[in-house]
Nucleic acid binder design. Structure first.
Lengths: 371, 371
DNA sequence: ATCGTATTTGAGACCGGTCTCACATGTCAA
DNA sequence: TTGACATGTGAGACCGGTCTCAAATACGAT
């Protein structure tokens, strides 16, 4: 019988009037605060039920100053990586009674900035962001200064003292590289999906994501300690855009002194490697060994199954939301950076390096090998 | 110099005072409504800039009654299918100046109901929902009655006259089944991930998703018109839970009179088929032909690449948000159900059915084959 | 019966915007 | 000069809740 006539919604005053009490009393009952006698409580609840009352959370938020909502800005929800993370965030948030407003930055710092403004305008209680750039971060500093809790997800921003939840990318890259070196590889490529005009890596200034930098450092460190010289020459960037990945990979594999192993920064890149290889008539692991970041389900059903670096993506999201909620609730200890462990899952995409014709640099390499 | 002291945020009154005008005038300038002289405009804007003013959208929404926010409830964001759809929604919404609040129902009607309450409480301007059940829909009817725009995504609810954007599942299933029949198959299984206590299909009462029902109808119709008797016997449900999928598939494939082809309701199920097959030492398409719903990237790199039914998932989301926005803006025509086309992408997972030992039902089947 | 204290209730301010309306001022034609 | 009308501005109500404060009532002890 609650024929809510699409006109105006039922307010607390309506309920109060119908129950024959004051607005304040009705609010106390319906808002579960203050005191009210059992008789009155029942009367009010009954009236509310009869009228189909539903609280206006906006009004509530305005007076209380809390919206019970957290804002989340990710690079791209379409990417299963973020999908899993968002699920983790969502689960943790809901468990704590918070809702989630989601925004997409498309890995664009300007859009990210706009999204921050909007979410702040909506008075979210806190923010979780995967910063699109380590350079353009004024807006994040502003959030911090405004005192609203902020948690960085998956990536850090140097000089910004807020909580962060990340995986140990440096170590993961190092372990993966070491695994390839142990299989006999000396020419190891790292192909990243990170935005870049120039596909050739020329130095840290090109990199605007902390994760990417860490991985590069990991690859280089492992290579160096195995005596491999100038490992940076096999690093490629910007393999994200459609078509670009194939170009980068095929040029790399057809060039002189080609790499015998590839470390792919994510699933999409790994997929590109697969496709390019098929087109080139090469196969894994005979002609090329492969390790990919992110243990997507499908990586175990390809032929051969791909060796991957498994990242606890769901946990990354869950943990970041948990931390954010604690901050909102008012835990005031110093911000920390939680580093979650990754696992190298060895499958069958690593083999011995193929015999390749001698090349200009081989002498140096073999010489170094002894050291 | 906008040292926003984390205490209280700057309000429009603060700006008005600083600019030496009334609150009403400042609001007119900052809210872009009404009139104000150029001089005053500049003064107010300058004051706002100086103080770092940012509008409280909550307060704004409360008076205007519009929140410029749409609520989205999907089954599972972790699922790339919904990830893509959400991206489409998000893009269309932002383009029209709307934000998105996301909720997860986990395909549970009760949770969906709760999510609807919450979003309505937050006074979203409209809702996009992938209904978890065709039976428990009171909450959706209530949304409709309340007059707030509602768009159904991917699935319909019979008897609920609201806009919907779906793919033509019946036809897709029919086309896929026909492709298998043309390759010579007569024993075609449909394995669905839909929730069910009993993995064996016994009738429509078990099904609570419109898409699932349509697909079953498609499979059955195509089979029937090819003279295949009792095609329902190869339909299995509930392959979603971990472990359950493998069990269902292996029982099906090891049973007497086993199917020679499988139509998988989504990627996850297709993946399960792959894994189970590997465990059983069977291969595609020699021992079994496979078609899967949803053209995920990876389906093209398995060995063999999988024939899939490509669904325009992003468009599904984009279109639903576009329609919702139009409704919010006040287009009052009768609700419609948009049906987007699917494409059968033939790859290499379909082959001729293997020679199988005669079984109890073969006689009927071969007899029927002639018709 | 009387007082002190605890509990219940209502009136009304408040949150930060929007919006209506009345008033002040400016412009132009008669 | 005066009146008609457009334009700019301010005062204050309002949205729907919460919350403070004071008044009203109930209860127990003396």
């Amino acid at each position: 019988m609650k024929r809510t006539t699409s006109k105006r919604l039922v307010t607390i005053s309506d309920v109060a009037q119908s129950a024959g009490v004051s607005k304040a009393t009705a609010a106390r009952v319906l808002g579960s605060y203050g005191t009210a006698s059992p008789v009155v409580k029942e009367k009010v609840r009954e009236a509310a039920r009869k009228l189909g009352y539903q609280a206006n959370e906006l009004a509530r938020s305005m007076t209380t100053g809390k919206s019970k909502t957290i804002g989340v800005i990710v690079g791209d929800i379409e990417n299963p990586y973020f999908g899993q993370a968002v699920r983790g965030i969502s689960d943790a948030a809901h468990a704590a009674g918070f809702d989630v407003i989601l925004s997409n930055s498309g890995e664009d710092a300007a859009k990210e900035k706009a999204a921050v403004r909007v979410l702040l305008g909506k008075r979210v209680d806190g923010l979780i962001v995967t910063p699109a750039s380590v350079y353009e971060t004024q807006h994040l500093h502003e959030v911090q200064r405004s005192g609203r809790p902020l948690v960085l997800l998956d990536r850090t921003v140097p000089g910004l003292a807020v909580d962060a939840v990340v995986t140990d990318d440096r170590q993961a890259a190092e372990a993966a590289t070491r695994a390839l070196i142990e299989a006999g590889h000396r020419r190891i490529a790292y192909i990243s999906a990170t935005e870049s005009d120039d596909p050739i890596y020329r130095g840290p200034h090109q990199i605007n994501l902390s994760t990417v930098m860490e991985r590069i450092e990991g690859v280089v460190a492992a290579s160096r300690s195995a005596g491999i010289e100038h490992p940076e020459r096999y690093i490629r960037l910007g393999a994200n855009r459609r078509g670009e990945g194939d170009k980068i990979i095929s040029e790399l594999l057809q060039g002189a002194d080609r790499p015998t192993a590839i470390l792919a920064s994510d699933n999409v890149v790994a997929l590109e490697v697969f496709k390019t290889l098929r087109r080139l008539g090469m196969s894994i692991p005979q002609d090329l060994s492969l390790i990919a970041f992110h243990d997507a389900d499908w990586t175990s059903v390809t032929s051969p199954p791909i060796t991957v670096i498994a990242q606890p993506v769901y946990d990354l999201g869950f943990e970041s939301a948990r931390i954010l909620v604690r901050r909102i609730t008012g835990i005031g200890d110093a911000p920390r950076c939680r580093v979650l462990a990754t696992t190298l899952i060895k499958r069958q995409s690593i083999g011995a390096p193929p015999e390749l014709p001698e090349s200009r640099t081989v002498l140096q390499n073999t010489a170094a090998k002894i050291g």
